[in-house]
Design a protein around this nucleic acid. Structure first.
Length: 506
RNA sequence: GCGCCCGUAGCUCAGUGGACAGAGCAGCGGACUUCUAAUCCGCGGGUCGCAGGUUCGAAUCCUGCCGGGCGCACCA
């Protein structure tokens, strides 16, 4: 079932003979919606855009939803909609219920989102948390878009870094300093106080932090197990030997270089992490995922071509492999940059961050700017400035509506409006009607930050409406109850898409 | 040197071809016997890094330059 805005676009498209995109003009004098379709058609129709626009405007006025249509500027068609359209739009939003804005793709994909995948040599850091906040929100968007999504965490349980990590814990157990190239953080002491392999314990701690951060993993993959399966996949690869090592001829498949899969005897003769990459990629796609999404920090951007090359080499469509990059988190302390070096231990851990500003503000903060934008966090200012986090502004709109609904005596009917609609009511309905397009585009572009941006605008329209109009006891009570009910549901959906809770009271 | 990303208000950032470029924070000034003032309203604030190009139209696309971040292993 289509949403109200799409329905209107479809009706206009029929008249124009081409797809029509409606947008909301910045200036209210330009109508409820406008389209530039006449400007786009001027090339193919070889007619002045204003002539085309005039024809479309005349045709549009025959639609029951359209009160009047005007040609403006170089050839825009501005549409002024009647109250009937707003009532109908709200009705269909309420009718759609939980599925309002949800996608129903022609072919639903099975998607794996692999994210975080930090080696368990220390607690979750804020830097890695951006990976989780971003990847998990993309996963939620894809689920809402109608796909079947699983989240996986991949970690190295046996490499050189892990050896150094274990050696560092062992050193502490003997009462010695960890090796120079080992791990020196305070948490090493705590691990040393307990017996056994510290790796599973560290991994459990990471998982716990991520669960608290509302990032849940369906599965975990170990590098050692995948490495062991390398012989299965080697015959499918294009390889050669050079300097005693086994190389993948990835440069012939779109990468810039060839890479070593198995080290030479002098270098130990063990497989590299790239060998595990090969096995892992084949494993993912063989497990039946239509699409394998890797969520990686910008420092790994060089591996983008590598994954595509591996897919080609293995005989898979590289379109099935997608690498999502996000820029890094830079921490500063009172303006002074600190390097995020886990080994030195001078980092901000996710748990501290959540203690400091709360899970909601933390998730909002890490996902609300574009993933191509580097995030600067001044850890001295983070707690203070978090009070101004717009997440509370959005949550407050939800809580305010919850208050209205608690006080409402009648069940929400959501009938048509009584009398003429107010500007704030129309604006709010239009904002709600935008949501399906916002959610769909955010999913396609893997850009969850569009959701907080939209949610702020929605809350803005609601707060303005709330300030100007009484819901309970008004002549339009039934209509307005429907309006705020729909608003509350969309706010909740937006928050849910980025892993933030919707509080009944604040 | 090569590659990826970024440069928009004092600060943090939206805005991937449309109308006079937006929001939050910060600053100043207003609004609570009311369904929650964590709210609302107003004011000030801009060479969209710079220069060319494409287009009826460019913050947005292309080229070059200048700044900044991150990479270029038989580490992961």
């Amino acid at each position: 079932m289509a949403d109200p805005l799409t329905d209107l676009e479809a009706a206009l498209a029929q008249m124009a003979g081409t797809p029509v995109a409606l947008e909301r003009p910045a200036d209210a004098a330009h109508g409820d919606y406008a389209t530039n379709v006449a400007l786009r058609l001027t090339g193919t129709q070889r007619r002045p855009p204003r002539d085309i626009a005039a024809d479309l405007a005349t045709a549009a006025e025959s639609l029951p939803a359209v009160e009047r249509a005007e040609v403006a500027g170089p050839g825009f068609v501005n549409l002024f909609l009647g109250d009937g359209w707003f009532g109908g739009a709200l009705g269909s939003i309420l009718g759609a219920g939980d599925s309002f804005g949800a996608g129903s793709p022609a072919k639903a994909e099975r998607v794996q989102v692999e994210m975080v995948s930090a080696n368990p040599t220390g607690p979750m850091t804020v830097a890695s948390a951006r990976n989780g906040a971003y990847g998990d929100s993309v996963a939620r968007l894809l689920t809402f878009a109608g796909h079947e999504v699983e989240r996986e965490y991949y970690y190295n349980d046996s490499g050189a870094q892990m050896d150094r990590f274990r050696a560092s814990v062992d050193a502490r157990r003997r009462g010695e300093e960890p090796p120079e190239d080992g791990y020196h953080g305070e948490y090493i002491h705590r691990l040393a106080a307990q017996d056994g392999d510290p790796v599973p314990r560290m991994l459990a701690s990471i998982e716990g932090s991520l669960e608290r951060f509302r990032v849940h993993f369906d599965s975990f993959a170990k590098q050692s197990e995948l490495e062991a399966r390398l012989p299965e996949f080697l015959p499918r690869l294009d390889t050669y030997e050079k300097d005693g090592a086994l190389w993948a001829r990835s440069s012939a498949y779109g990468d810039d270089d060839d890479w070593v899969l198995v080290r030479s005897a002098e270098q130990g003769g063990l497989p590299t992490y790239r060998a595990a990459d090969v096995a892992y990629l084949a494993d993912k796609l063989d497990r039946g995922f239509d699409r394998a999404i890797y969520v990686l920090g910008a420092d790994h951007h060089g591996t983008r071509k590598w994954y595509a090359a591996v897919a080609r080499m293995l005989g898979y469509d590289p379109e099935r492999v997608e690498v999502l990059l996000y820029q890094l988190v830079h921490l500063t302390k009172g303006g002074q940059a600190t390097k995020m070096a886990k080994r030195r231990g001078d980092v901000v851990f996710l748990d501290e961050f959540m203690d400091e500003i709360g899970v909601d503000a933390a998730r909002w903060y890490l996902v609300s700017r574009g993933h191509d934008q580097t995030i600067e966090i001044d850890i001295d200012l983070a707690a203070e400035s978090s009070r101004a986090n717009p997440v509370y502004y959005v949550q407050y709109s939800y809580a305010r509506i919850a208050g209205i609904l608690r006080n409402a005596e009648v069940a929400v009917a959501g009938s048509g409006p009584v009398g003429e609609l107010a500007r704030e009511e129309r604006d709010l309905v239009k904002r709600l009607a935008e949501f399906p397009a916002v959610a769909a585009e955010a999913a396609v572009r893997r850009a969850p930050h569009a959701i907080p941006t939209y949610a702020i605008r929605l809350a803005d329209d609601f707060h303005r409406f709330y300030h100007e109009h009484k819901v309970l006891g008004s002549e339009s009570e039934s209509f307005r109850l429907g309006l705020v009910t729909a608003t509350q549901a969309v706010v909740e959906r937006c928050l849910g898409l980025i892993g933030v809770e919707a509080p009944e009271r604040m």
